[in-house]
């Protein structure tokens, strides 16, 4: 492992919560402006988390904390694997493990709301998983490597070969960022019929941990977007931010969809755009 990989890993570990938190703050301001409100200060997410840490820790089951803690640890590890340039497939698998731990935590909490939240989160996972796996596959078809460190060195931007995969990725990013119309399991909007769904039974320090994990996760996702533009770094950063802005816009302009639509649309998008892109690459590269 080179020193640059080590540095970027370390930077991720330290800066990701800061960047993720700031993005969350910006998200809230921009959303507020779209709804013609003023919105909270940009540091609000940090105030929230600090307050959560100082609150009483209410649980239904003591062991649910175990899973939340596991989620936190494995999400950080996933990010570290990505930013230190390891195997992209391994990153995806570790990511899956982390997400499953969150779902199990919600199941374990044993309330009807968190149970349905967990089921829906699982549904979302099934919806996005094919596309998530097609991303490294598409990237491999172009670069002939799964190693993130090698992929960033590839001379042409990947978006040039993988527009279909990128469109498919955009579709599932809405699920991953927990944005409307695909925020079935848990949402920050007030239109939630499942109370807070997945996270209903988490409070105080546990909820704070989930929030920080979410920041780490968002930075990782933005990193994956960056991968498609890696040779020109400023375009990559710009693209990542632009796409996040796009997600905020989608979030504020759509009502929530039903799970049938979520599942069908995600699988079709993955099949048509992801699979189609891979088919084309296979035919062209031969």
């Amino acid at each position: 492992m080179s020193t640059s990989c080590l540095t970027s890993g370390l930077l991720y570990l330290l800066l990701a919560p800061l960047i993720g938190g700031l993005i969350a703050g910006l998200d809230r301001i921009i959303s507020a402006r779209m709804q013609t409100r003023v919105g909270p200060p940009i540091w609000q997410p940090f105030y929230d988390v600090c307050k959560l840490f100082s609150k009483e820790h209410l649980v239904v089951n003591r062991s649910q904390t175990l899973f939340v803690f596991g989620l936190f640890i494995f999400m950080i590890i996933t990010g570290l694997l990505f930013f230190t340039g390891y195997d992209l497939l391994l990153v995806i698998f570790a990511f899956t493990l982390a997400s499953i731990l969150l779902i199990l935590a919600a199941y374990k909490a044993g309330s009807p709301y968190s149970f349905i939240g967990a089921e829906r989160e699982l549904m979302q996972m099934m919806a996005y998983e094919p596309m998530v796996l097609l991303v490294p596959i598409g990237i491999y078809m172009v670069t002939k490597t799964f190693s993130v460190a090698e992929i960033v060195k590839y001379e042409t931007p990947l978006i040039y070969y993988l527009p279909g995969v990128f469109i498919g990725l955009l579709h599932i990013l809405t699920i991953k960022f927990r944005k409307s119309p695909f925020d079935l399991s848990s949402t920050h909007h007030a239109h939630q019929e499942l109370v807070k769904g997945l996270t209903t039974e988490f409070s105080g320090p546990s909820l704070a941990l989930i929030e920080i994990t979410h920041w780490y996760e968002n930075v990782l996702l933005l990193g994956i977007i960056f991968l498609f533009f890696a040779p020109i770094p400023w375009v990559g950063v710009l693209a990542a931010l632009l796409i996040y802005f796009l997600e905020i816009m989608i979030d504020n302009s759509f009502a929530r969809m039903k799970w049938e639509f979520l599942l069908k649309s995600s699988w079709w998008m993955a099949l048509v755009f992801g699979g189609g892109n891979i088919l084309l690459l296979m035919l062209l590269k031969r």
Partner: peptide
Amino acid sequence: ISANNKKTRVTAPY
């Protein structure tokens, strides 16, 4: 868990 143990209280689900 033990770091938060003092603050932890087991309740019924919502």
